[in-house]
Simulated assay, not measured.
Amino acid sequence: MCAAVYLLSTVTGYVLTSALLMKCPTLLHRRKREAFTSRHISHRGGAAENLENTMAAFKHAVDVGTDMLELDCHLTKDEQVVVSHDANLTRATGIEGCISDVAYADLPSYLCKLGVTFQRECYCEAGEDKCMPLLRDVFEAFPNTPVNVDIKVNNDTLIKKVSEMVIKYDREHLTVWGNSSNKIAKKCYKENPRIPVLFSLPRVLQLLGLFYTGLLPFVPLKEQFLEIPMPSIITNILFSPTLGYFSISSLFWDQVYIWVLNDDEDFQRAFDLGATGVMTDFPTKLKDFIERNGITKP
């Protein structure tokens, strides 16, 4: 009985949403259009081809032709915005401690070999560049390349400094920021609503609920970018081409990113399902796949 009621409510909500969006798709929403479109996104600069979040990785990705760099930010003890994924230094440097407790000039170098988080039994060996760069270094080196900034900790100073830097380098139209945490994403939007913001994980789940209950047309949405994982085991349920995220996003968003995909089968699956772009640790592999299959920007 409960299952039948749930199914009926889901179907009713979906039909209601579909009808409302067909009749008045801009009831509260305008389709989000950004200054750039990203098919090819390099996760941490391409963590399987160069050490993650290094200038060498970013330069290689840009040389390959990536449409967007994805990176992570923390704040050092002397309040420098440094590009690094982990708050703790142990995994990447072998030195115990936290970035927030160390001045930028005293940060240790990366290890000579790092594991690739989203690729099993895969390691990347370092070249000459083993330094954690400052965010301003990235902005200065790649002034025309879109950058996806993941604010890794709930720190008001970090958020403010990133916003100030985006403004200083005239990158409000070339930057998207946020975090899976809704608290951080909300603070980002409040600090600077002109910088496009990502859906946090709770907001992605809320978006799906609104869609299925028929309430989506009545709820204002501040986010401009959907950035979601694609676990293969649940892909057919959550990423159906007729239900779920993509049918929602096709109405309102030009930018739907799927992360982190590292083989041709997943690349193909994501694009077949309607993803705008794919985030990868292998920028060269993704470039070859896109060229080989004639995938163009929408």
Rank of each mutant, 00 (worst) to 15 (best):
I233Y: 06
T12G: 09
A57R: 03
C24I: 05
I290E: 04
C122T: 12
F246I: 14
I99G: 01
C112F: 11
A4Y: 10
V149G: 00
S163W: 02
T157G: 04
A126H: 08
V62I: 13
P229S: 14
A185R: 05
L286T: 08
P241N: 08
Y104Q: 06
P298R: 11
M22R: 11
D101Q: 14
L111R: 15
F282Y: 11
K113C: 13
G97N: 10
Y14F: 15
H173E: 14
R194H: 14
T213N: 08
K183T: 13
Y110G: 00
N236A: 09
L20D: 03
P217F: 01
C112N: 14
Q119D: 11
C112H: 15
C124P: 01
H29Y: 11
P220A: 12
G294A: 10
A270F: 03
D272K: 13
F142E: 02
T296F: 04
F58K: 03
Y104L: 08
A92T: 11
L7E: 10
E34K: 10
G209H: 11
R136V: 01
R120L: 08
D156M: 09
M22T: 12
D129V: 07
V162F: 03
I295S: 05
N148T: 00
N88I: 08
D67C: 01
V147P: 02
S240A: 07
D272Y: 04
L216K: 01
D264M: 08
E34R: 15
T145H: 06
F36K: 06
K23I: 12
D263P: 02
L216T: 03
P283W: 05
I167T: 13
E52G: 08
Y189M: 08
T276A: 12
D170T: 12
K77V: 05
G97Q: 07
I41E: 06
L16K: 04
A141S: 12
F211E: 00
C73M: 09
V260R: 02
L158I: 07
Y212I: 08
L21V: 07
S247Y: 06
L111I: 01
G97K: 06
D72T: 04
D254M: 08
S163C: 12
